[in-house]
Design a protein around this nucleic acid. Structure first.
Lengths: 334, 334
DNA sequence: GACCTTCATGTGAACGTTCAAACCGCCAAG
DNA sequence: CTTGGCGGTTTGAACGTTCACATGAAGGTC
């Protein structure tokens, strides 16, 4: 790795002082137009970029935002579209001249210890929290230390600390139910995540609310919680289909559970999109690949990423909630 | 963001000099056991961590490795299992005391410009390249500048610059074919990526080789290239099934194409796992969720991540090739 | 006892940048 | 002719660390 150009060298070459070059970069209005133009030329000519470490040391910043990758076994609202989400996030952060620094959950010790270490080392300026759990301690902990951060998701606490952005899962499920009711369905089941999961509970709430609003009677019996989200493979759908008042439509808390119902339906000889309707959640890439294509609720991933970054910088507490969009495909046909 | 502890403060508190504390961290053998123990106590007590920027400035490092996120529309061998891969990579890098810095492809200008800027700013120590394309210019460019890097994938060039690790796609497809031949199949089609795609071509090559080795005659006619990987939705499978010598088994260049064949088969009244066998590639999370579950080739993601980091640091050119593992499920039953 | 060696610790400088303050020339006001 | 102010530029110091070297004590050899 060979030596790189420094600010001093640029200054010498341009026949000005260090500080003038520094100002050309950070406070161009302070320079005479003539000088500015000349300095910029030299900068371009030498391909100069200020050393991020030196600048960070002096200004006490790092231009890095920490992002904790979810372990494979954790399931949040983003997992299915993680790559899209991460890409959108990275683009949004780069627009502000910063980058994402990835890290993972510690395998031992406190979850917060990693956050502490990154802050103590000044490796990051702040954090972007995802996969927020019920009563997640991180927002509180960070807010107490006045660390800039923003949460994607809600803790469910009355007064959530710090800014947040979330997808209105209830509104999404509500949309799905209304679509089904419009299609003539009256027995609509719900495949939920294990109780206590904020995302799952939120979506279930919307389903229940919409069913009640549509006057579908006692729907609560049609709620099935999966035992293990990752190894369900249709088990919850099987239980739902075996209910006394067999549902003619299923809304699932995510696409994986919805796909599970494909197997369960096949076993009972039910044709999806004809004998029974299925609607998923998250609009994962597979939704279009399966047969019949899966109707699902698409999260406005890019917009959320933009809003997250905006709120990270504004730092005002409080949140924003965005509705997912129902993407109708063949699986919800009848 | 409040003031953090500095090395100087630790030194004062421990009653030693700066350098002694520095040595306690970087060269513990230089200290008397008694002193070392004491200094470490104070460090733990104050929760001290050396400032990453100051250290980096002095040692001319950043402890950051750049990783370019693939745009959603690019399809490499990892896309389907991107989250697993990224997590494994991050864990492996963290074991060496570094972190991943994410960035994205520039929307304008040269692809390499972003790499240049990150290097000029000393934002990263090196790069981890993924989604290597045929004749990808990056290995060459980085090697010329003596920048540490490692590639996940091959450029296909005779003498690929720098270290690399890859999955032996040909061997994987070979395994799939042998499995099918063992099951009695003689007409085995291949759903390929657009010609020119290294990953796709590699996998197709293995399929062809294995068919020839099994004496299945003129197989080449049973190769179908999809036009657009992301919007294929069964088109290539439809073409394959419409071939004069209709295949009794399909091997796909990735799981998405394999899933497409589910729709195509259903349209023809073919039951997968009974009338026709299907094998995918990458073992994406959906493989277990669809019905029937998809037989697929699993990449040794974690091992690859470990080897990538190891070769990044050893910097010896040349490569390592790992075989994927055939995970047999219901779709390849007959 | 003079000298060299070894080991443990301390001191000044440097990495490349930005901050705070000083400087300089110029013009307007008194 | 002095004074004050202002836009534009330069200078010294500082951010927190590690490097290279200096120092000093203890021990061994002649």
């Amino acid at each position: 790795m060979h030596r790189e150009t420094t600010l001093e060298e640029v200054a010498e070459r341009a026949g000005v002082s260090r500080q003038t070059v520094s100002n050309a970069l950070n406070a161009p209005h302070k320079l005479h137009e003539r000088t500015l133009g000349h300095v910029r030329e030299v900068i371009a000519e030498l391909g100069y970029r200020p050393d991020a470490r030196a600048r960070g040391l002096r200004t006490n910043t790092s231009s890095l935002i920490g992002y904790c990758l979810p372990s494979d076994d954790v399931a949040g609202s983003v997992n299915a579209v993680m790559d899209q989400y991460l890409h959108a996030l990275s683009v949004a952060i780069e627009r502000t001249g910063r980058h994402l620094l990835l890290f993972t959950r510690a395998t031992h010790g406190s979850e917060l210890e990693v956050y502490r270490e990154l802050l103590a080392a000044h490796s990051v300026d702040g954090f972007l929290l995802s996969d927020i759990r019920t009563h997640d301690p991180r927002p509180q902990w960070l807010a107490e230390r006045a660390v800039p951060f923003v949460s994607f998701g809600r803790t469910g606490d009355e007064q959530q600390r710090g800014p947040w952005v979330d997808v209105d899962g209830a509104a999404g499920a509500d949309q799905a139910v209304r679509h089904l009711v419009h299609g003539g369905h009256t027995r609509i089941g719900f495949l939920g995540l294990p109780a206590g999961n904020r995302v799952g509970d939120d979506r279930a709430r919307g389903w229940l609310r919409a069913c009640a609003a549509a006057g579908l009677g006692d729907c609560e019996r049609m709620l099935v919680h999966c035992a293990d989200e990752h190894h369900d493979n249709g088990d919850s759908a099987r239980r739902a289909l075996a209910l006394p008042e067999s549902p003619t439509a299923l809304v699932a808390a995510n696409d994986a559970l919805a796909l599970g119902s494909y197997a369960a339906c096949a076993e009972r000889g039910l044709r999806i999109g004809e004998d029974i309707a299925v609607i998923g959640f998250d609009d994962s890439p597979t939704a279009t690949k399966v047969h019949p294509a899966l109707t699902s609720l698409r999260q406005p991933v890019e917009h959320i990423a933009q809003r997250l970054v905006a709120r990270l910088d504004s730092a005002e507490p409080g949140g924003e909630l965005y509705e997912p969009e129902l993407v109708v495909r063949a699986s919800s046909a009848p």
